[in-house]
């Protein structure tokens, strides 16, 4: 079981690292948002699953207080999955409306939409 936890942590850390690197690899704020939001959300999910598995194993061994670890981590997981894309959307919309132009665009349907 311990290897499952290591595996989950490993995948999580890899995607978190990717999210950090994406901030430096991409040319403008919108593409950076792509990398940062997706990778950190996905990486976080795996790290939380690892922590939940750890808590569940300890709970099964009879330490009832670790149920709190599992339930609280589950709460954080749900929160992150709901708030992260919403925040990304808010940033993207604000950036577009404040006049920061996306670079390298091949098509922009939003400009003609009267926004």
């Amino acid at each position: 079981m311990i290897w499952a936890i290591y595996l989950l942590f490993g995948i999580g850390l890899a995607f978190q690292a990717l999210g950090s690197v994406a901030l430096h690899r991409f040319p403008d704020a919108y593409t950076r948002l792509h990398g940062a939001t997706k990778c950190t959300t996905f990486g976080s999910i795996f790290i939380y699953l690892g922590v939940m598995l750890y808590g569940a194993i300890l709970f099964m061994e009879g330490q009832t207080s670790y149920a709190g670890l599992v339930s609280h981590t589950f709460l954080v997981l749900v929160l992150i999955m709901v708030t992260n894309p919403t925040g990304a959307h808010a940033i993207a919309r604000a950036a577009y409306r404040s006049g920061i132009k996306p670079k390298l665009l091949v098509v922009d349907e939003l400009r003609g939409a009267g926004k």
């Binding site: 901030l23 704020a29 940062a36 992260n84 925040g87 950036a95 404040s98 920061i100």
Partner: peptide
Amino acid sequence: TIADRVVAVDT
């Protein structure tokens, strides 16, 4: 730009 910074802070 400010947006870049906000993205980084969000991350």
